[in-house]
């Protein structure tokens, strides 16, 4: 059903820390690995060993440079479905294959009813929908819906594959609808932000901004105490000080 749920029980989503992400791609490949055999199976690779290798991935890691010159910053930027609260990708779907779950707000595509009209991908501002040519249907991040409730996995592993793999711990998963949750508090502390808020899709996923950089030049003045009493060449001064230290 493409009518959006009036409200969702939970607002499950990801919080991605741009201050910590090193762009290692683990979230992208572990996502590919889990999902090519999971709910979205298969995630087709086109021409995998040929001249134009590309395929369906539900998570992609960009790298941007911000600002200019030496003051600039490199930011690695993983991008997947943001499980928006009011996403047009759902309402434009003519078949109801694209829907937002009432229970947890996860936005899914039903691979059995999708006709592959691609309109939802046109409606997504975040490029989160990937058309699978071999399968003829639309694929997208499922928030690992087939992991997070999976009784076959131990409790601690009922989290998205990308979150479990992330070596730096830059990815966090939880209920952003509950402001007491760890993720919500993280977002509050680090003033997490929405992507393209003006479009009104109300993304559930949040991004944490890079922290302010720290410049050693500020510390320079604090540099050591020129010893007033000792005189002579630097070496003599040092030796005198060392003797004092040792005779203490």
């Amino acid at each position: 059903m493409t009518a959006l749920p009036a409200a969702t029980g939970k607002k499950l989503g990801l919080v991605i820390d741009l201050d910590t992400c090193v762009g290692c791609q683990a979230c992208a490949t572990s996502c590919k690995e889990w999902n090519t055999a999971g709910y979205s199976a298969p995630l087709t690779d086109e021409d995998p060993y040929g001249s134009d290798p590309h395929g369906a991935w539900l998570n992609r890691v960009h790298a941007f440079e911000a600002s200019d010159g030496i003051a600039s910053q490199t930011v690695h930027f993983p991008r997947s479905c943001l499980h928006c609260e009011t996403p047009a990708c759902v309402t434009v779907c003519p078949t109801g294959a694209s829907y937002k779950r009432g229970a947890d707000g996860i936005v899914l595509v039903d691979p059995d009813t999708c006709i592959g009209c691609k309109l939802c991908s046109w409606a997504c501002p975040y490029g989160a929908r990937e058309y699978d040519t071999s399968h003829g249907v639309m694929k997208k991040c499922t928030l690992c819906v087939d992991r997070i409730y999976n009784d076959h996995l131990p409790e601690e592993d009922r989290i998205p594959a990308c979150v479990r793999a992330c070596p730096t711990g830059a990815r966090h998963f939880g209920d952003l609808g509950d402001e007491t949750s760890a993720v919500s508090q993280l977002v509050a502390e680090r003033d997490g932000f929405d992507l393209l808020p003006t479009l009104g899709y109300k993304p559930v996923n949040k991004y944490l901004p890079p922290r302010k950089r720290r410049d050693a030049r500020q510390s320079a003045p604090a540099a050591g105490v020129e010893t007033a009493h000792a005189t002579g060449a630097a070496v003599e001064r040092l030796f005198a000080w060392v003797d004092r230290v040792l005779s203490r």
């Binding site: 290692c24 683990a26 992208a28 490949t29 572990s30 690995e33």
Partner: peptide
């Protein structure tokens, strides 16, 4: 428990 981009491939 973590795995890098290569290991996951």
């Amino acid at each position: 428990g973590v795995l890098c981009g290569k290991g996951s491939a």
